[in-house]
Design a protein around this nucleic acid. Structure first.
Lengths: 211, 211
DNA sequence: CCTGGTACCTACTCGCGAGTAAGACTACTG
DNA sequence: CAGTAGTCTTACTCGCGAGTAGGTACCAGG
């Protein structure tokens, strides 16, 4: 891009969106350090000083990307989950929403998961924040549905494991895109709800329509 | 370090180990890009040209670190697992070995998990390799123990999810070091073997000594 | 048609870090 | 006490990329 001379004059808000999109794309491909402001400006179709005028430094830009994508994702999940249902159904709808989002927003997911988690800068804040929200959401679901009262640490660590399993399975999915999102989600649902112990016996979990 | 003038004369093999240790330390703290050869040489107590003389370029050094740490970890797990036992016991011993290793080798773990997975260079090879070995180990355990024959993709994705859950729980553990390794391992064992469905009912998995 | 304001540019500075040239110190070997 | 092989150093080069100075085109409203 950026081969022609001057770019069309556009209102600031529109340019900012374009820049953010370009930044997410480049960051997802190269990671924070390897991505250069020059390349981002090129992909965005404008010159470097515009980046600095609108979005500030490289760090600010990256943090803004993370914030935007994290918000989009959490909203997608929040919209998808059905809060008045049984715990297993809640979990199921949450998983479906999560894998749905990842499937349609690979770049967002890569920025959030791979890139942001590595850098120790001001980004960790944004990222940890979102992850914490996700984990405590699951932890709450767990605590609320369990009969034997579990300690806070226990619920939290299990939630962390579940979230991690989801992240990792999403990662695996990127290498096997032929599988539909629903199938992947269902597999994770079976793993965490039934456990291997049941699965090796042939007992599987079914969505509510089959009950 | 490196405040005094000349370093003591040492045989190459010893220096190489020192350098590798320093490199793992620095890489684990800063990540590949942010780590500088200057800092590594300083921590190692030696000057920069020695690095290049012994370990080659920065990329080679990093790849060598990954190879070494990955091997150490896989060996630790292989040593810990008990191959002639029931599937659940095998899994249990593997988990214990894994968390044991991570607990005693935080830096190794950070390099392997956080840093290596992000860089797309020649490292991905080493890393993916180890991860693949781990995943297919678990997948084999699964396939071998299941009665209803599962597809290869199914077993592999479940294994990926389990490995991911382990990785993520290890990450969580770094922020909650007060918990002993065994407890964390047992929690993951319960999650993946029993599933939430059983756990919320109060059914837990016990190690074989209790049976 | 001027006057300001906003979008946009070319063309720099400047520091940091990878990698190297060229040689100095030590120790063993005959 | 040479000679030589291996260890170790200081002091560079050089490119890349973050960030900026100092403009130019374009569009209002007067």
């Amino acid at each position: 891009m950026r081969t022609e001379g001057r770019a069309k004059r556009l209102p600031r808000a529109v340019r900012e969106r374009q820049i953010m999109d370009a930044a997410v794309d480049v960051f997802s491909r190269l990671g924070f350090h390897a991505a250069s402001m020059d390349e981002i400006s090129e992909v965005a179709g404008i010159s470097k000083p515009m980046l600095y005028a609108y979005l500030g430094s490289k760090e600010e830009l990256f943090a803004t990307c993370i914030r935007r994508e994290a918000t989009r994702m959490m909203e997608a999940i929040a919209t998808g989950v059905e809060p008045d249902q049984e715990p297993d159904v809640q979990l199921w709808s949450g998983l479906r929403a999560f894998f749905g989002f990842v499937g349609e927003n690979r770049a967002s997911w890569l920025v959030l998961h791979r890139q942001a988690s590595t850098q120790g800068g001001p980004f960790a804040v944004e990222l940890t924040d979102m992850r914490t929200r996700a984990v405590s959401l699951v932890a709450a679901l767990l605590t609320q549905s369990t009969k034997a009262p579990a300690t806070k640490l226990e619920a939290e660590s299990l939630a962390a494991a579940l979230v991690g399993a989801g992240e990792s399975l999403a990662e695996w999915w990127l290498d096997h895109p032929e599988e539909p999102a629903g199938v992947v989600a269902a597999r994770l649902m079976n793993l965490v709800w039934m456990g291997f112990g049941d699965l090796v016996e042939g007992n599987v979990w079914h969505p509510p329509s089959r009950r």
